[in-house]
Amino acid sequence: MPREAEPSANEKAFLLKALQDEQIRLDGREFDQYRPLELTFGDEYGVANVSLGKTKILAKASAEVTVPFADRPLDGIFTIATELSPMAAPHFEVNRPTETEVLLSRLLEKTVRRSGALDTESLCLVAGQKCWSVRVDVHVLSHDGNLTDAACFAVVAALRHFRKPDTSMENGVLTVYTPAEREPVPLGWLHSPFCVTWSFFGDEGETALLDADWMEEQVRVASVTISLNRHGEICQIAKLGGVPVEAVALLQCTSVALTKVKEFSTYLDGKLAEDAKRRDKGGFMAELRAENDRIVG
């Protein structure tokens, strides 16, 4: 089993010294500053490409009609699949989940699925017989730290951008319409949770940084991931061990996280509106037009 390459002792010492003595991060960011976050949507609905500095993540949402679980006949199925392939970093192997991958998928699960962001009841078509199964695949294309925040943002963006085929029920016959027949419909979306990860440094975890890159993640002594939505609801908090941190500091982290989540939320709303405008062909009348957009030579 290949192991993750560790940074050298000199690199670690340099980073820590800069952080503790000079209060400077290696890339010159403020302690509570994210790397530039970029989101682009694909041509299809439900494809979100997120880059956070050098970390790049692709999330793709898809839906198909299946049979619901026997114990939940009125709910649709919603799964998030994370895959860390050797493309992201050489020590990831296919079909052998590392601890990073397990924790990432648990975090996404708790943040998006268990907080009820997607209304799974609206995915039910015929009780106990037919429902939509919505699946989001998260692919890490490049790993430079803070996968959680980037992956969570990508999942939420992909799901909010996604459109599933329209359906109708008439006399017990279920019809699923192609995009040509009827415009696809968005998912029943209730709130948008985002993850914010703090990393702690120092013997007692007294220095807290937002959005640690890979190098900082290797050196940190503890981390806490806080998931919130912009209404100020905590969806999940995970400080899974590590050096103990003052309780008061954690509360401060949460309140800063809330402002960051509001920024994410505004940014995503803006991007979605922009994309909707780009796709809008000018309404119903424009679509009914017989003329094509010809290139006039």
Binding site: G232, I234, Q236, I237, P244, S255
Partner: peptide, 27 residues
């Protein structure tokens, strides 16, 4: 927490709750 201090080693919250409640619950 670690010993007598207020230092939190593990904090796991898995349910949806208002952020204003956190302080009371944590205390």
């Amino acid at each position: 927490t670690l010993g007598d201090s207020d230092r939190v080693a593990v904090l796991v919250c898995e349910s949806r709750v208002q952020v204003s409640r956190l302080e009371g619950m944590l205390a």
